[in-house]
Nucleic acid binder design. Structure first.
Length: 427
RNA sequence: GGAGGGGUGGCAGAGUGGUUGAAUGCGGCAGUCUCGAAAACUGUUUAGCGGGUAUCCCCCGCUACGAGGGUUCGAAUCCCUCCCCCUCCGCCA
């Protein structure tokens, strides 16, 4: 959510920013609603002041026994109250319209973000590693995984529905090894670990921006709860409606959770394999930072996510998303893409964003620094995958496969696999 | 799930319809004292919104005592619904 006052005072700049994003928004309606809102507030408040004054006087009249005068005054206040009620109705409607508008306007791109219309305008910033050269025809994970008994697509469908998978044997162990490796690695680099609910309420989803605009992407229960699409939701909302002390910033959090996505509108995309499924595991990174440091914090977070891939020896490239390709709440986003032989290309495995004060304003997450300023200010929130575990598992299988159909376990994972160095099919 | 109790400022805890945004205590901040600190004493200490001035300095007003509705001239105080917490019972990993 953007600040209504800031919006009002920077209409032209924000109009241009939304143009760069390719996001349509009715600025004229906003201005009209905002003017109307302030006019009504003025009217309502002046009458409320009258009423408070009169009520106080009535109390005095009652105490001194002037009943007739009191009754007359009461009648006057009733009239005022009727007026207030009438104005209030209009004000409530105007404010809810306004709030709805503010909740659906996307974030303003940071000045360092390249302007563009879609993913073709994203800019690669670096590459690391070399895609493996196989002396044989490499298999895609959707062939390799089932052959080794690691991934079972059919049973995933049997247990739930399509786009759910089952991991078996060393697939399950490798998945768990990746989770533990990622958590331990980030933990050693200054991220505090949390375990959070896999379900969240609507206030929480509103705070991070999944609601109200993207309800179709979420699974929900008939009790009004939603399955989380990412731990970002929970880690960021840990501090919803809180004021943090500046000397505790930046805060760096991480958590492993399953993630659930309806993937409405993704029919036909990535249908093969486990690249796009309804449930996957992810280790998430979240930071709370001051406005002065948040851009550096973003670079650091990207480096932390990249470090996992470096440790795993997986080739990747990092790109910065252009204005037209960024997510709703992001001011700047880097995607990290890992090399996947089956795609003969790089495929997204992490997305790290600085949301600026966009989520903080929605969720009311502030910080105070008495030595620097009075009161409190909104923090900046950042989030990034560190990494998507399912896709990492795919990348390990495909990049580490051998001519005989086995898979070498990356060295850093072996301690998490009981020393196992190769994955073979069942004997 | 059943029965009962309760949700007030950073914390503790008063307040059951009329200058109560809210006593008191603790904590925090500032000052006096001190070489400095402690103690003591004095003062101060919520947030959001609207307007003025103008821009984070102050002034005026409105709103907020779990959330939402209602009664009333007026509600932290009365009524209804919901949420949450505590105690006991039941159930359960």
């Amino acid at each position: 959510m953007l600040d209504g006052r800031y919006l009002r005072e920077n209409l032209d700049a924000i109009r241009a920013a939304m143009g760069a994003r390719g996001a349509g928004w009715d600025f004229d309606r906003f201005v009209a609603l905002d003017d109307e809102r302030r006019r009504l507030i003025g009217e309502v408040e002046s009458r409320q002041a009258q009423r408070n004054e009169a009520s106080k006087a009535i109390g005095e009249l009652m105490r001194t026994g002037q009943r007739d005068e009191a009754e007359a005054a009461k009648q006057q206040v009733r009239v005022i109250n009727d007026e207030i009620a009438g104005l209030d109705g209009g004000l409530a409607q105007t404010e809810s319209d306004l709030r709805e508008m503010l909740l659906t306007i996307p974030n303003i791109p940071h000045e360092s973000v390249p302007v563009g219309t879609d993913e073709n305008d994203n800019v690669e910033v670096r590459r690391w590693g070399t895609p493996p050269a196989f002396g044989f025809e490499p298999q895609a994970h959707w062939d390799l995984g089932p052959a080794l008994g690691l991934i079972d697509f059919e049973r995933g469908v049997k247990l739930a529905k399509s786009r759910f998978i089952v991991l078996g044997r060393d697939g399950a162990r490798l998945n768990r090894a990746l989770i533990n490796f990622m958590l331990d690695t980030h933990g050693a680099r200054g991220y505090r670990e949390w375990a959070v609910p896999a379900m969240a309420n609507s206030e929480t989803l509103l705070g991070t921006g999944q609601l109200p605009k993207f309800a179709d992407d979420l699974f929900h229960t008939d009790e009004g709860l939603y399955l989380i699409p990412t731990a970002e939701v929970q880690l960021t909302n840990l501090h919803r409606e809180e004021v943090l002390e500046a000397d505790t910033l930046p805060r760096q959090y991480c958590a492993y959770t399953p993630c659930f996505r309806e993937e409405a509108g993704a029919a036909g995309r990535d249908t093969r394999g486990m690249i796009r499924v309804h449930q996957f595991d992810k280790v998430e990174l979240v930071k709370f930072a001051t406005p002065e440091t948040s851009m550096d914090a973003l670079e650091g977070m990207v480096a932390d996510a990249e470090f996992i891939l470096q440790q795993l020896g997986l080739a990747y490239r990092t790109i910065v998303l252009c204005t037209g390709d960024m997510g709703f709440g992001a001011a700047k986003t880097y995607d990290i893409e890992v090399w996947l032989p089956s795609y003969d290309n790089y495929k997204e495995i992490s997305s790290c964003s600085n949301c600026w004060d966009f989520q903080a304003r929605r969720a009311s997450i502030k910080y105070r620094s008495p030595a620097e300023f009075k009161g409190s200010r909104f923090v900046h929130t950042l989030n990034g995958s560190g990494l998507a575990v399912g896709r990492t598992l795919v990348a390990v299988l495909e990049n580490y496969q051998q001519a005989d159909g086995s898979v070498v376990v990356p060295e850093v994972l072996r301690p998490y696999m009981g020393g196992q160095d190769v994955i073979k099919g069942e004997a």
